[in-house]
Amino acid sequence: MGQRLRKLVSSLVVFGVVAAAAGWFLTKPEPWPASHWDGLGAPDPANGSLIFSAGGCVSCHATPGASGDAKLVLAGGLPLKSPFGTFHVPNISPDETAGIGGWTLAQFGDAMTRGVGSKGEHLYPSFPYGSYARMTAKDVNDLFGYIKTLPKSANVAAGHDLPFPFNIRLSLGGWKLLFFTDKPRVTIDASDPKIARGQYLVEGPGHCGECHTPRNALGGFEAGLWLAGAPNPEGEGRIPNITPGSKSIGAWSAGDIASYLETGFTPEFDSVGGSMVEVQQNMAKLPAADREAIAAYLKAIPAQE
């Protein structure tokens, strides 16, 4: 009997080790191979500036309350409250110690598009790498080049304040296994270059779905409800449905949408409000063709009531 028990215990131990190894293999951080970032050449800061605006980087990474040129100091520190705890936005200025000035392009690119930190750790999806995963290597390179031209800040942002078990980064591998993808969010006819460009901007650097798409209990996007509206992450009201099925925005023409992104005024002569103010100000810095592409995409996606 004792020998059978020892065999059973030994089998369970072996099974546990194998299961743990398999779990680690399936959920370990997966940066790009180094070759992914080879051959890109010198970054184009002008394009990097446009990607910076499309991504709304200042909205989260600028010092809270900053205005004017001070918003280009990406000192971090903004607290982001969520059902999982409070995240604190990091310093991504070119400071070599407090910011990302000492990072390589591969480290920056893996953080942006793979959710892998500079030390090879999983990053929390409060940083929208689930959207940035669609960005091209060229745009990532240009963005990194532009950020390196901005002022440095020695501010050290606070760490995240997360309760157990959300403070265990290894669990993020499981989250990525369930929800992380670099595939398009919706299936549409993107043979029109304008719609294809709009899809890239909205689903990628613009990360519009991060606020406009509802999430499940684990923080993943609800399947089949792309851009259908969601609770306001700031706690009050709702982020609107921006699909063609919306009772308000759905009636807008593509021209109305493009004009709204440029001017901040709706077809009803109302003005942009709330957190969308800063988004609109960022979109106004894009070329008119990009705003028109975003509008064309938003008119082409499946309607959600």
Rank of each mutant, 00 (worst) to 15 (best):
P205F: 04
Q304R: 13
V116A: 09
P302R: 05
A289C: 01
F15Q: 00
I257C: 01
V18Y: 12
C211H: 01
K148G: 08
A21R: 00
A296V: 09
Q3R: 14
V89A: 10
I100R: 06
G120N: 04
A288H: 01
V186T: 11
G220L: 08
A289E: 14
T243Q: 05
E210W: 10
A46V: 14
A196H: 02
L177V: 02
F164A: 12
P79A: 07
C211K: 00
A98W: 04
A42G: 00
G264I: 14
V279L: 11
S131V: 09
F179M: 00
G55H: 03
A190G: 02
Q280C: 14
S49G: 06
P64E: 12
E222F: 04
V272K: 12
H88C: 03
V14E: 02
P214T: 08
G120T: 10
P163I: 04
P128L: 12
M112N: 11
R169Y: 07
A22L: 14
R114L: 03
K194Y: 02
Y297E: 00
V89H: 06
L150A: 08
V9A: 15
I294Q: 08
A137N: 11
Q304E: 10
K81W: 00
E278M: 07
T97P: 03
L201Q: 08
S153D: 06
S118F: 05
E278T: 07
A70S: 11
M283R: 11
L201G: 12
R4Q: 02
G219Q: 01
F166S: 00
M1V: 08
L26C: 05
V73E: 07
W32Q: 12
A20Q: 05
A66S: 15
I100S: 08
A293G: 09
F221Y: 15
G159I: 00
G264M: 15
I51Q: 13
G56I: 01
G99V: 05
H88T: 11
G174V: 15
E236S: 14
V202D: 01
F108P: 04
A111S: 15
G273Q: 10
L227G: 03
L105W: 08
I100H: 02
V17I: 15
V9L: 11
G145T: 07
A288L: 11
S10F: 13
G56E: 03
G209I: 09
S10P: 01
K138E: 11
E262Q: 12
F164P: 01
M283L: 14
A21V: 15
G224Q: 12
A133F: 02
V202I: 14
I195P: 02
S191E: 00
T149R: 01
P214Q: 08
V279P: 03
L8K: 07
H61G: 04
Q107I: 01
I188L: 15
S248D: 06
V279D: 12
M1L: 07
G264H: 12
A54Y: 09
G16L: 11
D139K: 06
P83I: 04
P128C: 10
I92P: 14
G85K: 14
